[in-house]
Design a protein around this nucleic acid. Structure first.
Length: 871
RNA sequence: GCCAGAGUGGUGGAAUUGGCAGACACGCCGGACUCAAAAUCCGGUUCGGGUGAUACCGAGUGUGGGUUCGAGUCCCACCUCUGGUACCA
């Protein structure tokens, strides 16, 4: 039933492919360009998910629209193909990850082609292709040469289950982002990238980006700039000092004790003999905790006294030094001055261990809780030659820093939460580092001419299980063939680096390779880069708000500094498509005896049995839903994330099969605003499919596909032109603003109107087809051809809106009395303010409504409304 | 806790300079076509009054206040939800 979408879609996909309709035009500086980019997918074995076509359809509409405006469009697609699943599959089955990856890529590409996206497939990139990762390795060498890549023995996030270390950004709530395995801290020798050198630039450049505010804010928080001071606390009987970082040096007089991170280098020397056993036990226990345990146990503070003291430099008091794991070794100096009166964490710690609490800011009550404020006045903050008493915090901060600097015991300091990027992984399926290690510890970069450095062939891809805490685990590449592992240069023996790069490496710069993807001699032709960059529109999921988008910006800035790219930032405008949830589900809970219970009583769903209800079993009541059989019982109504275990996954292939690609595209755009989270509805797919059928039947016979007699060369009526131009205006504006749902709504209005016409002028219908074509390209190409056009419509001029067709002789003017609509009047268009008021007041109905009242005021908005204020 | 965003019919959502709340679609109800069903077409559909049917009246955009001739839209306070983040000194 319905229009023959299957034949049409196959036909046009073959046409576009064989004619290379969407080949990217050559860089031509005399022509405007538009670079519209999707976040390239990881080609997983599960195939395409309905979330993918959401963003891809949006960018495809923009790309097709821009082409019709005569703009040169770059609209590419590729594969972020390194990653754990292919490797894990290889470990289980022995299939080489390259094979798995190739198969998955083929499947993904077929699925994307079946959706009619206008990608230039000749420009596809694949991060696992040696022709591509050659240049990923090349960029790494540039980073190394700039001193931005270094090896360091650092505390890392070690994930035993994955057999690899992870970047801070890949650890969420103490478990790995992929797989949710526990993560432990341990020191290891690893490659690091000095992203911290770019912290300030990464932060300030955010202000000028046309990005979602939430994403910019997340990056700001992640970079975490804070201004303050470093202050030295001398130790008695020693030349050592404990240096702390604080954002509140104004509270220095309130520092009554100090805390070091358990890993701090001074812990050993400061600890008294009497406390040594206790301190060592605490350090060991802290090291053993996973980040997850550390996070979970954060409610209660732990720590031990070292037996040592330090001297508060502003008042000479000896204060005790503790160690506690609430102080992080990786932030600031790994040590803090504790001001329990004015910091919640220090307050809690001081209460628990009965440490003194000193008030230095008046205005709060520190007998119950810390008073954390910058509004109070400083008290108890003076020594023999210095005082900040009576000042507000902001003034006191700068005054005391000046004093500290003059005395040589402290200075202004800016700190960032951002850490250097841990860049090596103990995995097989990743880019090998182009680095050689001499036996004497020499680090020798591989000559650029020898790139790409390919992965060695191996049979066993398993990560090495950690055998003891002392030795660093050896990555899989250490088990490669000797011919790969060992290199002799000028008689000197070298061993290759056995770590591989993280998955983020390839995605840090793929958007640059698209401008010139087959260049063997250089990373890309600078002229092509200059023409196509920046990316004008970048669409992808919000889950990449920090990781990918921060790393890519970092690499881009480095490439800019060494003159490889011409812009400081890669992505001018960024949009996140909202997640698509499964269909709305209603759940009724029953207790152990099988009696249905109301939602309020269900605390842990596991104690109750859940039963799915259909929409017809429930009824809306108040904020929620109740069970129709017993309206006293509230049921849970919610849309959930699509997941295999929940069984609510929608496969795009099935939708294409039973409704066609155009319906899927249109539905995903019609669901609601692109950025918003939405839940799937099969009924909604029916709706847009019905619309496409109606559009088809305006022009073509449903079954034979022949052009209808009503479509002819007759002259368009003013009403037809009005409807058409209304639609041109609305659709054009909505595409520009990426409001696809309302653009589609307007086209539905047009189809409903046109359905009533007995004659449908070809000139009008052609324009409508062009408007619809970015959304439903297959259907429109077919109709376009049926109307007698020979070529693809992909490069036809976009219909131009003309105001003159919308001019009306008369306008409906709303008459309000005291702000309420009471009457409507048809008045000549562009009537003056005075005449509008005169006509409105003259109307019989208006006189009737204001009879017996005093007219106090009349507000007139010409062509629109008259509000009569009467008492 | 903190940061960001959002609360509109039975449902998804419209209403971007304050000016007819509910476009468009789903669902539902009624009708046409049909032996029947599907598909399709036509009409109705915020809620509550009111009417034979219109007309008409009242209420209504999370809650409470405010500004205004006029508030979904602006201001203040609060509630709920979604996403992010969490000992960052």
């Amino acid at each position: 039933m319905g229009y023959p979408y299957k034949d049409i879609e196959r036909k046009w996909q073959e046409y576009w492919e064989s004619k290379k309709t969407f080949r990217t035009p050559e860089a031509d500086t005399s022509k405007e360009k538009f670079y519209v980019l999707d976040m390239f997918p990881y080609p997983s074995g599960a195939g395409l998910h309905v979330g993918h076509p959401e963003g891809y359809t949006a960018t495809d509409i923009i790309a097709r629209y821009k082409r019709m405006l005569g703009v040169n469009v770059l609209h590419p697609m590729g594969w972020d193909a390194y990653g754990l699943p292919a490797e894990q599959y290889a470990i289980e089955t022995g299939t080489h990850p390259r094979i798995t990856t190739e198969n998955n890529i083929k499947r993904f590409r077929d699925q994307l082609k079946a959706l009619g996206f206008s990608y230039d497939w000749d420009r596809q990139v694949d991060t696992t292709d040696p022709d591509y990762y050659k240049w990923t390795q090349w960029i790494f060498l540039q980073l190394y040469k700039k001193g931005l890549a270094y090896i360091a023995e650092v505390p890392v996030n070690w994930c035993p289950a994955l057999g690899t270390v992870l970047a801070n950004e890949e650890v969420i709530d103490g478990v790995s982002e992929r797989g949710g395995h526990p993560v432990y801290r341990r020191p290891m020798k690893q490659w690091m990238l000095k992203i911290t050198a770019y912290a300030d630039r990464l932060l300030t450049a955010l202000d000028d980006l046309d990005w979602p505010e939430s994403t910019k804010e997340m990056q700001r928080n992640w970079i975490g700039r804070s201004e303050g001071a470093e202050v030295d606390f001398p130790l008695p009987n020693s030349d050592d000092k404990i240096r702390v970082f604080t954002t509140r040096p104004d509270t220095l007089f309130g520092a009554t004790y100090m805390v070091l991170a358990p890993e701090h280098s001074l812990v050993e020397s400061i600890t008294s003999d009497a406390k040594r056993a206790e301190v060592e036990a605490y350090i060991k226990a802290a090291a053993r905790k996973s980040d997850l345990e550390r996070t979970e146990l954060q409610k209660t503070k732990t720590g031990v006294f070292t037996g040592g003291y330090a001297i508060n430099p502003v008042n000479g008091e000896q204060i005790p030094v503790w160690i506690a794991d609430y102080v992080l070794a990786t932030y600031g100096t790994g040590a803090i001055m504790a001001v329990p009166g004015h910091d919640e964490r220090d307050y809690e710690f001081a209460k628990k261990f009965d440490l003194p609490i000193q008030e230095v800011i008046a205005g709060g009550d520190i007998s119950e809780a810390a008073y954390v404020s910058k509004d109070g006045i400083l008290v108890n903050s003076a020594n023999d030659n210095f005082s900040i008493n009576g000042l507000k915090a902001t003034e006191a901060i700068s005054k005391i820093i000046d004093w500290l600097e003059a005395e040589g015991i402290g200075q202004r300091q800016i700190n960032y939460k951002l850490r250097d990027w841990l860049f090596s992984r103990q995995r097989y399926w990743g880019e090998p580092f182009p680095i050689l290690h001499g036996e004497d510890g020499e680090i020798l970069p591989v000559d650029e001419a020898e790139l790409p450095l390919s992965l060695p062939e191996m049979e066993d891809y398993k990560p090495t299980p950690i055998d003891d805490d002392e030795k660093d685990p050896q990555p899989p590449l250490s088990r490669g063939q000797d011919s790969w592992k060992y290199v002799t240069i000028n008689g000197k023996k070298y061993t290759r680096e056995f770590n591989t790069m993280p998955q983020w490496a390839g995605s840090c710069w793929y958007y640059l390779r698209y401008v010139d993807p087959h260049n063997d001699d250089q990373i890309f032709d600078p002229a092509a880069e200059k023409y196509w960059m920046n990316v004008d529109l970048y669409v992808g999921g919000a889950e990449h708000s920090v990781l990918h988008l921060l790393y890519a910006r970092f690499w881009h800035k480095v490439l800019y500094d060494i003159g490889i790219v011409s812009t400081d930032e890669p992505f001018k405008k960024l949009i996140h498509q909202g997640m698509i949830l499964g269909e709305m589900e209603f759940t009724l809970y029953s207790d152990a005896n099988g009696n249905p219970v109301s939602l309020e009583t269900v605390e842990k769903a596991s104690d109750y049995t859940a039963r799915k209800l259909s929409e017809s079993d429930v009824e809306k009541k108040g904020d929620g839903f109740v069970w129709k059989e017993n309206p006293a019982i509230r049921v849970d109504g919610k849309a959930h994330k699509m997941s295999k275990s929940r069984g609510n996954v929608i496969n795009p292939d099935d939708i294409v099969e039973s409704y066609g690609a155009d319906s899927l595209r249109l539905y995903e755009m019609f669901m609601g605003p692109l950025e918003q989270q939405k839940s799937w509805s099969m009924k909604g797919v029916d709706g847009v499919n019905r619309f496409l059928n109606r559009a088809w039947r305006l022009m073509a016979d449903e079954y034979s596909g022949k052009l209808l007699d009503q479509v002819d060369d007759s002259a368009a009526t003013p009403e037809q032109l009005r409807q058409l131009h209304l639609t041109i205006k609305k659709v054009t504006e909505d595409i520009e603003n990426m409001r696809f749902n309302t653009a589609i709504a307007q086209m539905m209005v047009f189809v409903n109107e046109a359905n009533k016409w007995t004659q449908r002028p070809r000139s009008v219908m052609e324009k409508f087809i062009l408007l619809l074509s970015p959304f439903a390209p297959h259907l429109c190409e077919e109709l376009w051809q049926m109307l007698g056009n020979e070529n693809t419509l992909a490069y036809e001029g976009w219909p131009v809106f003309d105001e003159k067709y919308l001019v009306e002789d008369s306008k409906e003017v709303v008459i309000q009395i005291n702000g309420k609509v009471r009457y409507k009047l048809q008045l000549p268009a562009d009537l003056s303010r005075e005449d509008t008021e005169k006509q409105a007041m003259a109307a019989d109905r208006v006189q009737e409504l204001i009879a017996g009242k005093n007219v106090i005021k009349v507000i007139v908005v010409p062509n629109k409304l008259v509000n009569i204020v009467a008492r």
